[in-house]
Design a protein around this nucleic acid. Structure first.
Length: 296
DNA sequence: AGTCGAGCCTGCTGGC
DNA sequence: TGCCAGCAGGCTCGAC
């Protein structure tokens, strides 16, 4: 599930419960997620106040009053939900309709009991997600963050930057956009959608975003515009819910209804005047969806 | 050095 | 109905 729009949706949902609130108790229901929890993981969190909850790429970053930062990644199937208290009860926050079944609760791995009242529960069936604490002073050296490219919705990301980052790359446009060192936070869904909206082929050589002089081409400009549009629309829709993603109140995101190519193999292309059919093929081990007729 | 495939783990879907 | 292969939104590592 979680690409940038889903992680940002989760961040906004967790903010009221976590920001300015103290972690009174941390329940670890297993010793690992993708990786073993660090020694004294719970001890470094309990009694600490979350000064702010931020996001970098697909990572959530909880800034603690101890000078530590808690980094959280949702992997493929991670989700958070906020419940009013006592996670063993069915008392979900008002307005939520999602009451997890007991077999879903088997994957409730971490529970943050917050001084603000509610508990924040991390659920992750596949356990590709992980959590790690590091000192804020070490953020520049944090391996998970240090090579990540610019935020696609930030000022540093524009056509010239994208052209520079892909200059000389022998790989495809699709693979380049999935590379977090080029631009942060895009995953398979939003790369497919952005390429479609910019009418660029996923097979196109990444290096063609720049001229020989290194100037950004029109393609690079179109792509940046498309990335902005698709991410902003998806955040507005609360992300995309395919299998796992839910907002923190249990609501589904609904951007999946706005997909134009992703998971639409065999359906007609939605570009005005195009009679193409959406195709799927496997590129770098991942499904790519595109319209061969209008994406060049 | 840059690029690509394998693997991590569980659950769901479609075909037989 | 039941079984099993194939597939899934991310990331790192090792091999070329």
């Amino acid at each position: 599930m979680p690409e940038l729009p889903e992680v940002e949706t989760v961040r906004r949902g967790l903010q009221p419960a976590m920001e300015g609130s103290k972690i009174t108790r941390l329940e670890l229901r297993r010793k690992d997620l993708r990786f073993p929890f660090q020694p004294d993981f719970a001890g470094r969190l309990q009694g600490r106040t979350v000064a702010s909850l931020g996001r970098r790429a697909k990572y959530l970053l909880a800034d603690l009053d101890s000078g530590d930062v808690l980094l959280m990644h949702l992997g493929m199937s991670g989700s958070f939900r906020v419940v009013s208290d006592a996670p063993d009860e069915e008392n979900v926050m008002p307005g939520a309709f999602h009451h997890p079944r007991s077999d879903e609760r088997a994957h409730d791995h971490v529970v943050f009991h917050m001084s603000s009242g509610p508990s924040v529960i991390y659920n992750d069936p596949r356990r590709f997600g992980f959590m790690k604490i590091f000192a804020r002073s070490e953020i520049e050296n944090e391996p998970f963050l240090k090579d990540i490219g610019p935020e696609p919705l930030g000022n540093a990301f524009d056509a010239a930057m994208l052209a520079g980052a892909t200059a000389g790359k022998k790989t495809s446009l699709k693979a380049a956009l999935l590379d977090q060192r080029v631009v942060a936070g895009l995953g398979n869904i939003y790369v497919c959608e952005a390429l479609f909206r910019s009418h660029l082929s996923p097979r196109r050589l990444a290096a063609t975003l720049a001229t020989k002089k290194g100037e950004p081409t029109d393609h690079s400009k179109r792509l940046v515009t498309a990335i902005h549009e698709v991410l902003n629309q998806a955040i507005k829709a609360g992300g995309s819910s395919l299998r796992d993603h839910r907002q923190t109140d249990g609501e589904l995101g609904y951007f999946q209804h706005s997909f134009q190519v992703y998971d639409r193999e065999g359906e007609p292309c939605q570009t005005d005047g195009c009679s193409g059919i959406v195709k799927r093929f496997v590129q770098n081990g991942r499904s790519t969806f595109w319209c061969p007729k209008c994406q060049r």
